[in-house]
Simulated assay, not measured.
Amino acid sequence: MTDNSTRTDLFTPTLMGSINLANRIVMAPVTRSRYAEDGIPNELHATYYAQRASAGLIVAEATNISAQGRGYAATPGIWSEDQVTGWKKVTDAVHNAGGKIVSQLWHVGRFSSVDLQPNGEAPVAPSAIKAEGNTYTVDGFVPVSMPRALETDEIPGIIEQYKVAAENAKRAGFDGVEVHSANSYLLDQFLRDSTNQRTDQYGGSIENRARLTLEVTEAIVKIWGNDKVGIRLSPVTPDAGNTPPDSNVMAMYGYLIQQLNRFDLAYLHFVEGATATSRAVPEGIDLDALSTQFSGPFIGNNNYDLEMAIERRDQGKIDAVAFGRLFISNPDLVDRLRHGAELTIAPHETYYGGGAKGYTDWPKGTY
């Protein structure tokens, strides 16, 4: 049997902030849509994550910070006491299995439906620009709704939602939190000039459009400490409606990353290319040049296999590598990669919805 641990240090312990990782293999946040409408994790979710606890770090699936932040049915939340109690079952199970897990804090912004919002209200966004595409509700797929622009005096309330969620994540026993400022959700919508047409201090200039992400990060760092907070960015990922990236990706994200450095974060989790699709980037954009501006540990993400991860680690371009879909059907992915064992590919129909089938019934490999 192959021993890939002789070829790379990806299987050796490392430190991200003050979080000790047993290896440099990260489980990326993978939405599985297996929650009741109350968004409360249960024993099934605890089993699922514990099965994958050999990852150096688990980034739990994107978790709604508030009822307003919700954009898809069957996704988890972390704003209620019952949700906190549910997540404690998950974190306890992961810790008992020897793993580490952080919570990814999520507000979808405009990509939602009135059917999912409290009292049937319009989703909120930096600007009243409607996304394209459909989202999933208890009644099936429906078109996303027209959002309303947040008033300037509402922004502190958005930051407060993140603060409460961060405090709840600490009470739920997570090892840290990841700020979800990627994939064209609320914070990313503020970053991009394609979705942010504001004229107040949160719109217009690069500095203004980066303001909310930085204020949210600062607020969470005050709760957790800088050494237990990471952030996820996706500079060139279009949203479901193909909203384009910012008109000046290098300047926008270069500024943001340089400003994030003042927090001395635990890590930067970077989507290299378009999330879950292609690693290709538009002409004139150099994601490696952006990532090297970050002063802390860097997690590479998007369509990696082991050979690519080894190569980019050897080149010093990543400190760790995140796998998402491969963890769905390979709960013991770290050992399979270490020993060169065959990987199972999950069919797409098992990705979302349902119960234990296609979720916790994947067998371990032979190695």
Rank of each mutant, 00 (worst) to 15 (best):
D193P: 00
G173A: 07
G203F: 04
F190A: 02
A131H: 12
E151H: 10
N226P: 08
G176V: 12
S184K: 14
G157D: 12
W224F: 11
D139F: 12
Q201I: 13
A210C: 15
N196L: 05
L214E: 10
T217Q: 07
Q161D: 14
R192F: 00
D139S: 15
V179F: 01
E160F: 02
V229W: 02
V144E: 09
P147E: 08
E178F: 04
N196K: 03
V138F: 09
Q161V: 04
N196V: 07
Y136V: 13
P126A: 08
V164E: 11
Q197M: 13
I158V: 15
V124C: 03
L187Q: 01
K228G: 05
A131S: 15
E160M: 07
V138Q: 14
K228D: 03
A128N: 10
I223R: 02
K163C: 11
L187H: 00
K163Q: 15
A219Y: 02
D153I: 05
P126H: 03
A125S: 15
T213R: 01
F141S: 14
G225E: 07
K170Q: 14
R192G: 00
K228A: 14
I223E: 13
V216R: 01
T137N: 10
A149F: 11
R148V: 10
G157F: 03
E160K: 14
G140M: 11
I231H: 01
L214C: 09
F190V: 04
V164D: 06
R192I: 00
I155G: 05
R171Q: 14
Q201V: 12
N168V: 13
Y162V: 06
S184D: 05
T137P: 12
G133W: 03
H180N: 03
Q201R: 14
V164R: 13
N134V: 12
M146I: 09
P147T: 08
A165V: 11
E132Y: 04
D193R: 00
N196D: 07
G204T: 07
P156I: 06
E178G: 11
A131C: 13
E154V: 07
V138K: 15
V142W: 05
L186E: 00
L212I: 07
V144G: 10
S205D: 04
R192L: 07
G173Q: 03
K163Y: 01
